[in-house]
Simulated assay, not measured.
Amino acid sequence: MTYAFPPGGLPDQTGDPAANGAIFTAAYALIPAAVQRDIVTSLLPRWERTRAWILARPLSGFAETFAQLAVEVEAGGGSEDPEPDFHAEGVLFVAEGEGRLWAAGGHHALTAGSYAYLPPGRPWAIRATTRLRLHWIRRRYIPVDGLAVPEFLLTSDAQTPVNWMPGTEQWGTTRFVDPQDLRHDMHVNIVTFRPGGRIPFAETHVMEHGLYVLEGTARYLLNDRWHEVGPGDFMWLRAFCPQACIATGDGPFRYLLYKDVNRHPALTFRGAP
């Protein structure tokens, strides 16, 4: 299995810059793989031999619950203190390469397809054995009285079955954590469509989304416009942005999906104490 990642590099001096299809609207952003280049990377404090594409961050009036990064770590690089926010939980999904993750008192091997859930307030560290490319999703955890914080979890795409939607095996979700486990306030899943599979209605819901296309092609409805998307394209959706999908091509269409779940909506009034 292969998983897409930002291509880096720089295109040549020919071509129309507007032809890449990047778009930012009040309801969504589409950041194609073709614009995920070297000049838009950032270095991260306390990370060595590492660069990152910051694809999403909390943005007032848009999507406010999460940050999403594509992180490239050269062999021997990594961090002993990677997470600057004590209250942040995280998910790592490895697109390419090998490394070691220290968490929950042990060392764990990382390879392509590895999935790690990192609880808030718990130390972890990471070191690349070869060049390591991974997707990192971060969120401020929302605690609930009477519910424990979720434990560290390490699993993989290969170890986790696809749960097909009722009445079809054309559209399904790889769920790395139990959706009934209310300790979790976010889900990071992989959604899979076989050729011709589709979301058969325009989903319109309160959850925010980050969707990174790992494999394949599709026509994707965002708000009121269809877009052709493929490996490495990133879609960033605010709450209530309508979305639907029709998979195209001869192989599966798969994307890594973030969504916020399992918490009451915050009721914040202007001027409230």
Rank of each mutant, 00 (worst) to 15 (best):
T2F: 10
Y3S: 11
A4T: 07
F5D: 00
P7C: 07
G8A: 05
L10P: 00
P11Q: 05
P11R: 05
D12Y: 14
T14P: 02
G15R: 05
A18T: 12
G21A: 11
I23K: 04
I23V: 15
A27P: 00
A27T: 09
A27Q: 10
Y28M: 01
A34T: 08
V35P: 00
D38T: 10
I39G: 01
T41Y: 05
L43Q: 13
L44A: 08
W47I: 06
W53E: 01
L55Q: 06
S60R: 11
A63Q: 06
A63L: 02
F66I: 01
F66E: 00
A67M: 12
Q68S: 15
A70T: 09
V73N: 02
V73K: 00
E80F: 06
A88T: 05
E89F: 03
G90L: 04
F93Y: 14
L101T: 06
H108L: 07
A116I: 02
Y117G: 04
P119R: 06
R122F: 09
A125E: 08
A125M: 07
T129M: 09
T129V: 14
H135M: 12
H135P: 03
W136Y: 15
R140K: 12
I142F: 04
V144F: 08
L147D: 05
V149S: 08
P150E: 07
E151N: 08
T155P: 14
S156F: 05
D157Y: 13
D157E: 14
T160N: 05
T160V: 05
N163E: 15
N163R: 13
T168I: 13
Q170V: 01
Q170A: 12
G172F: 03
T173L: 05
T174N: 06
D178M: 08
Q180C: 14
L182I: 08
R183M: 08
H184M: 00
D185G: 12
D185L: 07
M186L: 12
M186P: 00
H187D: 09
V188N: 12
V188T: 15
V191T: 15
R194I: 06
R194Q: 13
G196E: 07
G196I: 05
R198P: 01
T204V: 07
M207E: 14
G210F: 01
L211T: 01
T217R: 13
T217F: 11
R219L: 03
L221E: 09
L222T: 09
W226Q: 03
W226I: 03
H227N: 06
H227C: 08
V229G: 00
G230I: 00
P231E: 11
W236N: 10
C241H: 02
C241V: 10
P242L: 10
Q243R: 12
I246W: 04
I246R: 03
D250A: 15
L257R: 11
Y258W: 14
V261G: 08
V261Q: 11
R263E: 13
H264L: 14
P265H: 08
A266R: 11
R270Q: 07
